[in-house]
Design a binder for these strands. Structure first.
Ligand SMILES: [Zn+2]
Ligand SMILES: [Zn+2]
Ligand SMILES: [Zn+2]
Ligand SMILES: [Zn+2]
Lengths: 165, 165
DNA sequence: ACATCTAATGTTATACCATAACAGTCAAGG
DNA sequence: CCTTGACTGTTATGGTATAACATTAGATGT
């Protein structure tokens, strides 16, 4: 994604920026302990990297940052940490972008939808109970047993919509 | 995807197999004429290939078939044809599978959801008005202007669900 | 028919995304 | 200790997608 920090500000109010990063990180620690899995240094650092990013980060972006900090420099290092975070609900994969983003509400049972802004590349995690329910209904209608779903919307965030002269 | 024809049958009733292929193809022809775009030989053949497939096909699968029939053998040949079809509503991209599938209802205004079966790799296009509306609502709630969305569900189709001993 | 312009096709080359397989390391638990 | 399983790291490879450019086929106006 584009480097918004370098552009001197955030265009979207509701992104998972540095604001609540500490809280989320603490939540993640507790959750890992509760589930009996280890939030090791690479994994934790990977989560921090995602939390600091404005939008979603590609695996190779994460890898570069990890490598620069003394961790491994090869793709599996990043993919393993990212997959761990996704598996344990601490991050999400955004398939449309081939990228990953920190979960904004770890712990809460939430089937999320992602709102991808074409103006500023931000990715917002929106609660999607209604969407999920509707999808379950549609699936049921054709006898399909739904396991999980990917819901990704593309458009313009509030900030970028307003910025259109 | 796996080659179901070789496995001797279809496991899912509602796939875009050879049954209605002719009708869809005719519909596509008319639609292209109406929109003033050209359904050239490669494009048409690509659509046919998608229609004949049981599930979704990767771009390189399509490319191989095209190449074997005298068309170009390099990736852009397939990607261009596939992107054309997607742009004009004649095919859909399934991001979770890095694959493409023919649209089952070209022409109709339909925001579709895709039901991906983990048992037989089939991809079913389901009408998703309700889902789409719910998503629009969720987006609206945070001031997000929705352009288009990807809705992909993973689970078991009716056939595979029943086949579970 | 002819010149001209544009869309479409084809090619080479390259970039980007993701995983398999194996070797070394580290922290419990016996 | 020493075994065991989880974790990290590496090399190597495979799969997905696009940029850039040359060529060709259709449409358009004269
Ligand atoms: Zn989340
Ligand atoms: Zn924006
Ligand atoms: Zn469709
Ligand atoms: Zn199935």
């Amino acid at each position: 994604m584009t480097d918004h920090a370098a552009e001197g500000g955030f265009c979207c109010a509701d992104h998972s920026g540095t604001a609540n990063a500490q809280a989320i990180l603490a939540q993640a620690e507790g959750q890992a302990r509760a589930r009996g899995v280890r939030l090791t240094p690479v994994r934790k650092r990977t989560l921090e990297i995602l939390l600091q990013a404005h939008g979603a980060l590609g695996a190779y972006d994460v890898l570069q940052r990890l490598g620069a900090e003394g961790y491994g420099t090869q793709p599996p290092v990043a993919y393993r940490a990212l997959n761990f975070l996704v598996e344990h609900g601490l991050a999400h994969r955004i398939r449309r972008l081939n990228a990953f983003t920190a979960c904004a509400h770890p712990g809460e049972e939430h089937r999320a939808a992602f709102l991808i802004c074409e103006g500023c590349d931000s990715v917002t995690e929106a609660p999607a109970r209604g969407v999920s329910d509707a999808l379950a209904l549609a699936a049921d209608a054709v006898g399909f047993h739904l396991e999980r779903a990917t819901i990704e919307a593309v458009g313009l965030c509030a900030g970028c919509k307003g910025a259109r002269a």
